[in-house]
Write a protein that binds this DNA or RNA. Structure first.
Lengths: 182, 182
DNA sequence: GCAGTTTCGCTACTTCGAGTATCGAAACCG
DNA sequence: CGGTTTCGATACTCGAAGTAGCGAAACTGC
């Protein structure tokens, strides 16, 4: 059951470096101006190395977001408490430097790119949706709607102001969603 | 007080034709693939004519949306009734062919383009926000948040499915927002 | 009619970023 | 050492936004 390393030169372990460079570049220049060339330069890596690991800029961004978000923390409690924690966790993560801009960018790239939409769905969105759906014991349609509300609100705000939401708005969003749950 | 027409050849009255061609093209091909070349061809107009009237693709899209949305209908009633009508109006408009995709596209273009953001704000968003703010007699911060929720939710759904929201979700959204108003 | 001014369509161009191709050098295995 | 794969570097294709230049057309005022 050894890992059975494949033949040839092993890949250098620069994934984390590239992810960090990606978020940093997006934070500094915005999604559009964060070109793959610049990201590669910021990571000290050749552009070809990036394209060897991820098939497109959107795929790179998606992988970067998956890495940045990590697993959804589920600390038990009532359904309202779970939901509340999830919303606050999402708001906090999306406010980290570069994350919100990367999310908004890859999301809208995906609108006109079916292949990227597939990647985004399966790698980033479906996992969280399924966990929430099971944990809250809500029908799929309902969870999808609530995710629309939470992510949509956060992204719309980020896109407009470029700043994270103020605490009062996060509180209001939590209250709205928790209320809608009953 | 005659209009005092400026000298030179007057502009042909093709604005409406261009707007129609824009929405049709966006509906058929999506925002990204609705190039200015294609839109011009669909409208039977030269590309230079479009750039003589609107400074960028985003500006054209914004003007097109301003035209498509028209004035916010305000049929009196209680604050809840006004809000409810506004949300349903927005949901209906954004579901018209091409409108949602154009909105999402111009919105995300604006994230990385300050000039376009200015155009989008002053020509499309501020007018509606100010009317709502005055009509509902709510503080600016509150109205901004509620707009984030409504538009964000609608755009996120459109981007994911490409389809308008189902009635049940619109109802749920209306209820959430109206509740948050009290 | 004619001079002045502006818009029209057309074609060609510049610019920039995503993604591809090629190639010699380097890193691993047996 | 031979086979295989990754690495960095450079050069390339392609598509779309936006620009430049031009002759023709449409209007005004004289």
């Amino acid at each position: 059951m050894a890992p059975d390393r494949p033949p040839g030169r092993p890949r250098s372990s620069v994934d984390a470096t590239v992810f960090a460079a990606t978020l940093r570049t997006v934070d500094e220049l915005g999604y559009t101006h964060a070109t793959v060339d610049r990201i590669a330069a910021a990571a000290g890596v050749a552009k070809t190395t990036i394209y060897r690991r991820w098939p497109s800029k959107g795929a790179l961004m998606t992988a970067c977001l998956v890495d940045a978000f990590g697993p959804l923390p589920l600390a038990g409690g009532s359904r309202a408490e779970i939901m509340s924690a999830a919303v606050r966790w999402g708001a906090a993560k999306i406010s980290e430097p570069g994350v919100g801009a990367a999310f908004a960018g890859v999301f809208t790239d995906a609108i006109n790119d079916p292949a990227l939409r597939e990647i985004l769905s399966t790698q980033l969105q479906d996992p969280y949706r399924l966990v929430l759906q099971e944990t809250l014991d809500e029908p799929e349609q309902r969870v999808l709607f609530l995710i629309d509300v939470v992510i949509g609100t956060l992204l719309h705000r980020m896109g407009m102001t470029g700043e994270p939401m103020i605490d009062a708005d996060v509180d209001a969003l939590v209250e709205m969603v928790v209320r809608a749950l009953r």
